[in-house]
Design a protein around this nucleic acid. Structure first.
Lengths: 205, 205
DNA sequence: GCCATATACTGAACAGTGTTCAGCATAGTG
DNA sequence: CACTATGCTGAACACTGTTCAGTATATGGC
């Protein structure tokens, strides 16, 4: 005994190696273009070995999506302990989300666009995904409590805001041929539009 | 001569048959799950025949995306000849877009989500896609001319609005596991938020 | 030390994919 | 009737995700 634990640790090690290789390849070449054999080649194991650690190719993608969600959650969570005004925290949250997507375009596409289209990967979205959404919801609730918003329904408002920033983030990443106006101007406009759109009427600033 | 034209018409006929079969299958089973052989089986030709009419599988998708854009453009264009107030026309345009997506979810995913991720299908978006965007831009310009909006930049505002409604449409279609609030409430909230967000301050109604 | 067992891994095989192309009928022309 | 051009075939190629009988290695008991 003791050796059993070492074996388990080594097994976990190879699992991580597979994830590392897959992450690198997925981000560089896209989920579709990366075959199990390519991953196996990179870690210098036989293709079959991968199936001793993951049920199928989609499960590898699932794990990587979880990682991405976790990173996003860390960034969004940092805003909670911020002493700024509720609406400013909300604005910061929206910006943080958009920039996270633009700084990790391939991860973003993988997690928020490709994953859903590909398999019915509900699990990731119903756990880690909801948690990420919770961060935004928290900021919205703060603004509601301060009496700054038009509605008391935090879910309705947070979902609206999320749909808006997700839309902008995904088109900026995927519609590369589209003649967008300058990117920062568009981001500013979107954040401004969304926040003004959900703000209670007759408030200054 | 004359027969040459008949031949050409018959050739065009088979091209349409391929498109019909592909459209049906793509919408029912998704682009990925439909193989060239499945399409060939449906029209009872050999797989190789399809390559006499289309360069590759992606070109078939391209043509179907074009159709979808054209249908959307027809719907959006109908609003132009509307005598309603500029802001109401704008609201109608946003709603029309969202409903078009929700009524043709598989077409929408195919055209606006999957197509871009899959191949670098710039052509469709830079021609027909831009034209569809032009409808929205037209409504925005109308509202600008009426002095109803916060900015004079029709492109900036139209792109913001489009990103917003595209975001909502695509998450409503793809995030089936997500606990959304009632759909119509969310659509109302999004349209309201976007329009209020781009409206000039201090205007009544 | 030696054998039995359990574990980790292999790589050939299967059914499928998009795509190509030599060859074959058939219809139209001189 | 011969010849050519057209439309179509289906076998073949190189790939895909996935499975599984077999092998090599390391562990535990005697």
């Amino acid at each position: 005994m003791g050796s059993k634990q070492r074996r388990a640790r080594e097994k976990e090690g190879l699992r991580e190696e597979i994830l590392d290789a897959a992450r690198t390849l997925f981000v560089k070449e896209g989920y579709e273009s990366v075959s199990i054999r390519k991953i196996a080649d990179k870690i210098e194991y036989a293709p079959g070995t991968i199936y001793l650690y993951f049920r199928d190719k989609a499960e590898i993608l699932d794990r990587i999506c979880e990682e991405t969600f976790a990173r996003l959650i860390r960034k969004m969570d940092a805003i909670k302990n911020d002493t700024a005004a509720p609406l400013d925290k909300l604005r910061r949250g929206l910006r943080t989300y958009i920039h996270f997507g633009l700084e990790n375009p391939n991860h973003y596409v993988l997690t928020f666009i490709q994953a859903k289209v590909h398999h019915e990967s509900k699990s990731v979205f119903e756990t880690t995904g909801l948690q990420a959404f919770g961060c935004l919801r928290h900021a919205v609730q703060g603004a509601i409590d301060a009496g700054e918003l038009v509605s008391n329904d935090a879910d309705e408002l947070a979902q609206t805001l999320w749909a808006g920033i997700h839309g902008l983030t995904s088109v900026l990443i995927t519609c590369t041929g589209f003649p967008f106006v300058e990117q920062n101007r568009l981001i500013d406009r979107m954040v401004h539009t969304l926040v003004e759109g959900v703000r209670a009427k007759g408030n200054k600033s």
